[in-house]
Design a protein around this nucleic acid. Sequence first.
DNA 1: TCAATAGTGTCTTTCAGACACTATAAA
DNA 2: TTTATAGTGTCTGAAAGACACTATTGA
Lengths: 245, 245
Amino acid sequence: MTHYKSEQEFLSSYSIHDFDVPLVSVDMSIFSIIDDELQVLLVKRADYPEKGKWALPGGFIDLKQDSTLDDTAQRKLRDKTGVDTPYLEQVGTVGAMNRDPRGWSVTVAYMALIAADSVVLSKDSSSEDVKWVPVFQLAKLDKLAFDHNQIFEMCHERLKSKVQYTSLPVNLLSEEFTLTELQSTFEIILDTSVEKKSFRRRVLDADILEETGNMKTGSNRPAKLYRAKEQGKDHLFPRSIEGPR
Amino acid sequence: MTHYKSEQEFLSSYSIHDFDVPLVSVDMSIFSIIDDELQVLLVKRADYPEKGKWALPGGFIDLKQDSTLDDTAQRKLRDKTGVDTPYLEQVGTVGAMNRDPRGWSVTVAYMALIAADSVVLSKDSSSEDVKWVPVFQLAKLDKLAFDHNQIFEMCHERLKSKVQYTSLPVNLLSEEFTLTELQSTFEIILDTSVEKKSFRRRVLDADILEETGNMKTGSNRPAKLYRAKEQGKDHLFPRSIEGPR
DNA sequence: TCAATAGTGTCTTTCAGACACTATAAA
DNA sequence: TTTATAGTGTCTGAAAGACACTATTGA
């Protein structure tokens, strides 16, 4: 890909306006729990437009390579993180005349949940840098490229809302985990405390976990290790987690 | 728009493949309750591809006229039904190499809920006929154009699922309605009976309705008429409607 | 034995289902 | 007075919160 000297130069050579078709891309919020915080993966843009700004990873559909939209998302995720079989969910689509200087553009937002320990970060040609950013810092610090702050917010809202009534967070943990670790990821995402007994009743009664037979030891009572019965699926609870009264 | 003699002729003149950009369209499931049944609006395609087949109303983004995707959906809805301020929700986006013979194509699915009495059906140039079809008949009878059966199913699932824990169905009724009428629309969509007392408690406690002061009379005890406090919004209940035990 | 975390017993609270009951209109 | 529908009283049951309790390890 050619590198242009200025956004001006870049735009003047861009001719998508000539065809009555919008641009289409995929952008994703890749979430993970790192250092007991919910973090999201950002890339620094290597090209115009918005060169040098931090952005959600994403890009255009490869009409030859991708046979579905989900393939595009999967490919983008693999390129940045090396992770291949994550939890991947389409969140929504934003399209507008003026969200991209190249013209009418549509982007399909995805969110991915991955276990931090399974990741090997890597840059590709479209990004000069990659980093994890704690979600609570994002609102204050970074003004992302395009409307990515808004797209990220959609994904974050979806995540928080689904955590209230599904077992989604199992996808943020490595294969084996304790109930306390699982509870902790719920608490981190919901940013509230969850009552231990209710939590265990809820999760165990749902019959979505199975004991691995292993224990996690430390300088205290060992904890049973569990694994999700159906990888990648999320159970729907009949009622929401309500939090403290 | 030119009318072609065959799909072959049409396709050979189509050149979107030359640009590495997919087609983008909006398709919508417009729901209404008519004759005590949940029905969806279909149009008969006037042009290739899939000429003559029934399809969900939709079409391409008008890059000049529409400034957002929601505008496109709103415009399509207005064209077919004359309705201007409905409940409109984006359901999801499907994109694939082979879902449209013209090439890689992406469609954003919307669902709209409207009160039947507010509709004036009208055809536009892209459709030669328009009709309401009961949802339960659709599965059996019609093989729709493209992957519209699948897109419709996405919308129908979303509708049924949201009805379980939100007040969405108020958007299917005209401005004033009785609690019994509201209960009935829940029952029609969920295809199950709902217990009267629980239903009224739930709805009334949620404080989302207000009495209009009017009564609906008949040859029996008159019923209070209500109106949604916030038009177009849907309340989230803490628990789902569970249906009979 | 103590500190620390895992895991349980059990009471209360909230809200949905069941179902019998009362209320109010027209014919 | 009957019929039809609107609307209520109140019991039961399921699942969440509160919180004190016991259990099991290493140091």
